[in-house]
Amino acid sequence: MSNLYSYVNVDHPAPKCLATSQEIRDRGSAFVGNVYHASTPEEAKAAISHHRNVVHAGKKAYEISAWRCMVLKHGKSGLGGPDDFEVKAGYDDDGEQWAGSKVSRVMQHEGVLDAVVIVSRWFGGTLLGPARFAHIETCASEVCRTFKRVEEMEECISTLTRLDDMLASLRQELNDLTQNVDLATSGSTSARTASDEIENVKGRRSRQPDYTVVQRDLDITKARRLVGARESAVKSVKSLLSRKRIMLASTEAEV
């Protein structure tokens, strides 16, 4: 009860599993991999404890784990660049000798950082020999690759959010500038054309985009296309702004 309470307490939210591998069964044994975000070895160990005592509470399994975390070196602030950081790595066989190092090598090969990978094995009564390591590595590889996709998706969503904010700011600036042009041209045809242009720009996206489905499905291809579309939109609005500034300057010079 105390373990469960510590994770549902608002001060200690439960670690969130980011990916789970397909289950592998072999002669009664079962293998499943999971990956959690962990920015420090302490977070990694907390996730392992949560996985063992909460997710798999009451289930007798070997919880083979490994973690790799990019952390600040002692006495460093991070302002000195990459040299201020180091990778802290470790693993736990949990009774399955040499298994933890196998998971650690998979993480290193896949370039996974700030994560802990846990491969659970339920022993079916038959010794598998070296085959067990192949199953452990397969499960670890699957969740490591998914973790990398999750990381890329998070980066895409962050970029999209930044571009959406930039577009909103640029469109507001364009709206304000267009109103100034309207006043300067006193309702001329060029002013009406400018108003039409800004209405077209505003109409293309009046609501904040929702990327929930794209993120949930890990649709990296679509996310990249959306980033490209937003970048094109930013370029287009900047071009309109440039034209409006020239138009306003020309109109003011004639007055």
Rank of each mutant, 00 (worst) to 15 (best):
R225W: 05
L241H: 05
T221L: 06
G228H: 15
R225S: 13
R245S: 07
T221G: 03
I220W: 08
L218C: 01
R216T: 02
R204Q: 06
L226T: 02
D219A: 11
V214M: 13
V214S: 05
V237M: 11
Q208W: 11
V234R: 15
A229H: 14
V213Q: 08
G203W: 01
R216H: 10
G228L: 14
R216E: 12
R230N: 14
V227H: 13
R224F: 10
I246R: 12
K244Y: 09
L226C: 02
L241Q: 13
L226F: 07
V213E: 08
L218Q: 04
R225E: 15
K235E: 14
V227C: 13
E231Q: 15
D210T: 01
T212R: 11
R243Y: 04
P209Y: 09
V237T: 08
A223C: 06
D210Q: 05
R205F: 02
S239I: 05
A223S: 08
V237K: 07
V227D: 07
G203Q: 02
K222R: 14
T212C: 01
A229F: 10
R225A: 13
R207I: 03
K235P: 05
Y211T: 00
R207G: 00
R225M: 11
D210P: 03
K202W: 02
V214Y: 01
D217M: 08
V237W: 11
L240C: 09
G203R: 09
R216C: 02
T221R: 14
Y211N: 04
Q208R: 12
G203F: 02
L218A: 05
S232D: 15
K244P: 01
L240P: 00
V234T: 09
S236A: 14
S242D: 09
T212A: 12
V214E: 06
R230Q: 13
Q215P: 03
R224E: 09
K238G: 03
L241A: 03
R230M: 03
K222L: 10
I220V: 14
D210S: 12
S239Y: 08
V234H: 12
V213M: 04
I220G: 02
A229W: 10
I220E: 05
D210V: 05
D217Y: 00
D219E: 04
R245W: 02
G228K: 15
V234S: 09
K235H: 12
S242Y: 07
V227T: 11
A233S: 06
G203S: 09
R204Y: 02
T212S: 14
E231K: 13
R204K: 11
R225F: 02
D219V: 06
L241D: 03
T212I: 01
I246L: 11
V237C: 09
R224Y: 07
I220T: 05
L218N: 11
